[in-house]
Write a protein that binds this DNA or RNA. Structure first.
Lengths: 212, 212
DNA sequence: ATACTTGTTATACGATCTTATAATTTCACT
DNA sequence: AGTGAAATTATAAGATCGTATAACAAGTAT
């Protein structure tokens, strides 16, 4: 007699652990944001992108802001890992490691309009949400800390002085972010290789004692 | 017999020239964006902020995107004018003029979370709207052009070389924008005076031939 | 097999959004 | 004063949004 009453047409589905589902939803959110920017931040769109119903987002995250914050954390972590991996894979001299950092920063994986688009949405939220701001501060300090290490090693290795490594790392970060922003908003303004050269020039200024 | 049939309570109003009204609406839009970020971009909120009804926006701008683009133009123009005025008011030596540019860039008028908030919203739109992208490109090239002039004058005056002035101006712009972004997202990360110092350090690197 | 936990679907409600359209008032001009 | 153009209000229609709630089903343990 037929099979176990496949109710009036309710959709089949299979369960996932909360951890897996949360990540799927976070990644779907990122895809939506890449595609539509701020307009992509919507329970319905994200649920559709993930192939589930809206209630699931409420169930796993309570409110949508939590999902977005979670997506932000995923993305931050992923990018930082990519950067650190490139550094780790480089020859272990301070110069090569810093070069590797610069090169991967301008590689298509990171120097990308879609990636910036996600970031821009996050920035907008950080300015108005304490929850997002907290995530951003943690992420930023990890990022600056990594650069601090690279610059400090280079200075020690080559024997030049830096008055304030933390501030120098902040400047280098700002330069990278600013170039990334400018290029993504208008890819015709300069070429990625030119951006890399400008970063190397910045380091050359450091080397020549402009920050001592 | 009474007066001219003051209809059943329709609101009084007074007309303005399209030009004035457009500007009022544009400025109301900016205030809304400052207050609520992307969430502030809404016909209803902007109309309320301006003290008019929604239909007026449709009437003057057709669709809301046009209003936002117009607000973007107002804002760009205003900021650039502030910068150029500070330069014009400075003593007419290349060094003083560049210093003035740096100083005003980090003054509370420009180095401000509200201002960045507006910009972030615009960036988000630029990435997804050709109309906004066109405005941004024009604005960006004006900005970089101004810096190009300042840097070129300094190099000529002091007799040091710059391989590519345009690229150097792009880097300096990126540094300014990056510092602005970082500080607004997290004002605890560094002090505006430190940001100014980092800009001067960058110029010192230029002076020492790091970009030659 | 049966029951239980909970991940998941389904659905509804109220708010807000954009855009379109019609009615009305203001103001400049004759 | 009266007329006409258009700036402005008023209102409605249809989408979409976020969240709450209840029913259902999948998988685990008993």
């Amino acid at each position: 007699m037929a099979r176990k009453v496949v109710a009036k047409g309710r959709a089949r589905f299979h369960r996932e652990t909360p951890e897996d589902r949360r990540r799927q939803l976070g990644e779907a959110a990122l895809r939506c944001i890449v595609k539509h920017g701020n307009a992509g931040v919507s329970v319905r769109q994200i649920a559709a992108e993930a192939g589930v119903t809206q209630g699931l987002i409420t169930h796993h995250f309570g409110e949508i802001n939590e999902l977005v914050a979670y997506a932000f954390d995923i993305m931050s972590e992923g990018l930082l890992q990519s950067l650190l991996k490139a550094v780790a894979d480089a020859e272990p001299t301070p110069q090569k490691r810093l070069d590797a950092f610069i090169n991967v920063s301008f590689s298509p994986m990171l120097f990308d309009r879609g990636v910036l688009g996600v970031w821009v949405v996050f920035w907008g939220l950080v300015l108005h949400s304490p929850r997002m701001s907290a995530s951003q501060q943690g992420e930023y300090s990890n990022y600056v800390g990594a650069i601090e290490g690279l610059l400090g090693d280079l200075a020690a290795d080559e024997g030049f002085g830096i008055a304030d490594i933390r501030l120098s790392a902040i400047a280098f970060t700002a330069l990278l972010d600013g170039l990334w922003l400018a290029w993504c908003l208008n890819p015709a303004s300069f070429k990625p290789e030119e951006g890399m050269q400008l970063c190397r020039n910045w380091v050359e200024g450091l080397r020549r004692g402009a920050y001592a």
